[in-house]
Design a protein around this nucleic acid. Sequence first.
RNA 1: GCACGGGUAGCUCAAUUGGAUAGAGCGUCGGCCUCCGAAGCCGAAGGUUGUGGGUUCGACCCCCGCCCCGUGCACCA
Length: 591
Amino acid sequence: MLHLALESRLQAAVTALYPGIVVDSIRVRPASDSKFGDYQSNALMALARERKVNPRQLATDVVARMDVTDWCEPVEIAGPGFLNFRLRPGALESVLQAALVGEHLFFSVTAPELRRTVVIDYSSPNVAKPMHVGHIRSTILGESLSRVLRLLGHRVISDNHIGDWGTQFGMLLLGWKTMLDAAALDADPIGELERIYKRVNIGCKEQPETLERARAELVKLQAGDEENLKIWREMIRLSQVQFDTIYGRLGVRFDHTLGESFYNPWLPEVVSRLLELGIARESEGAVAVFSDGTLPQKEDPFLISRDGEWVANPALIRKSDGAFNYATTDLATLDYRLRTWSPSEIIYVTDGRQQLHFRQVFQAFHRWQPQAATAVRLTHAWFGSILGEDGKPFKTRSGDTVKLADLLDEAEERALRVVLEKRPDLDSVAQREVARKIGLGAVKYQDLLPNRQSDYVFSWDKMLALTGNTAVYVQYQCTRAGKVVRDAGVLPAAWTSGPALCLQEPSELALARHLLSFGLSLEAVGDECRPNLLCNYLYELASLYSRFYDSCPVLKAAEPARTTRLALCELTARVLRQGLDCLGIEAPESM
RNA sequence: GCACGGGUAGCUCAAUUGGAUAGAGCGUCGGCCUCCGAAGCCGAAGGUUGUGGGUUCGACCCCCGCCCCGUGCACCA
């Protein structure tokens, strides 16, 4: 908010001094310490180095060309060239006042001409397999990015690229035909599908003829066999029921669910085009994309060093048996998305093990459609692997995976135990509802809080923690703030009629200053695909509110403090609620 | 071997384009409900940011070397 106003003044002043210079990196940020004022800029020191001039002199020259007297006291130049901005009395209050009447909530909605169309690809579970804890990160991260970008005014298209095609269906079809337990399928469809898959998988390893039969079923499916197609569709339907149940609980919604199978019709064309263009060629019976030598060896995803020599590291787009694979589908998907939605950005939210794959896909696409590729920003927002409590990789095939539904159940149960203890006065329906919001919030927050690139050590206790830097803390402060406003009854007319706020106490000022930075954290989340920045912001805000609440009586205070503090409660509640919503977390009215 | 991450307090993690005295939670120790919700607040202890150099007014961050951990590297997705 205010930092943007100051920033544009500063940029204008720099431009006045150096016409034509790129000022994007000239930033104004909240002061690192309130003793330096409200806002600061460090950018002139970097600029001075670049221009080889004295930084203090540059700061003096820039400040002389900058007029911020409507908002600030005279700008102070500190140390080697920091600019410190100290707001004039009333400046913060006027921003709060505007927020109270609904002019903004401390962030700016992107101007229409700057709005982006962003496709976000996340979750992507596999058909016929239970969603496990490994799916949560992509789902929660993607959903949060989607919500933040939408709030900022961008056009977001969320697409669930489910795994509904591939070699596993040979085994599933064989199992379905030879060992399906109809009653079990009825009672627990995914459990039964998982069972037959595992049984056939073992059979394939032990008996070559079983493997052959599974392959034969797959070939029939791919050739369009009616019976197999029917079974395949039924397996997808049963899986979608499971997905929808989980997504319903998580509050996750997709605009599209275009699985891998959707792109089948285009795969032969993708391969033949890449062959024609000389991007791909045959090798050992398969078709693969190789390096074109235009990139430095270290950056080329199609080269790898082995024993001191750079050798080919191709991406296969057609196997020697004629089947297509992952890269082929992703290229077709990319092509389809660009043709269909003309996005300015596509964000893939998957685990970090797929980094090389996406670098290859992006690079291959760039060679296939250079013009289209330069018009879109392709982002692989990857996240770290999930590890077991022992720090070793959390392998899905080991059989002891934690199912997502079980995790969510456990989260709600643990939360309910606390609610029963803290709120025996509520009826059981209300208790369950609060426990649901708290339990699910805890899981989501825990998932979003760490830097996404860090590896993830799965722990029940950590995942379901209800004290400290958790969603519960933020939810709790949010309900307290909301409660004060409700208890006030009639809201002060001054909120809508004119300047009546007056911030005085340090804890009031600190809280107000932090409210103004909401937009900064939203922008950062959108730019860097890092919802943890929003978690940090909200935790800090909740913490500042708690300190304020502890030291400043609200309802019993005399005017104008009462009106001011009530306004802080109201705005804090609004920002916390909006921020939690961006994380996909619900804020209970009371808890 | 090469590439991409990571290494920060006892543990789990932050640190806003290189910025001012590296911050939280958990755990430990000690305080605070006669006062709008104690799922809370205040305080203490705890650090040579893996390691050795370099760049500069200033480095957890950038550059070079080395040591650990994870992941990936041709027909799985």
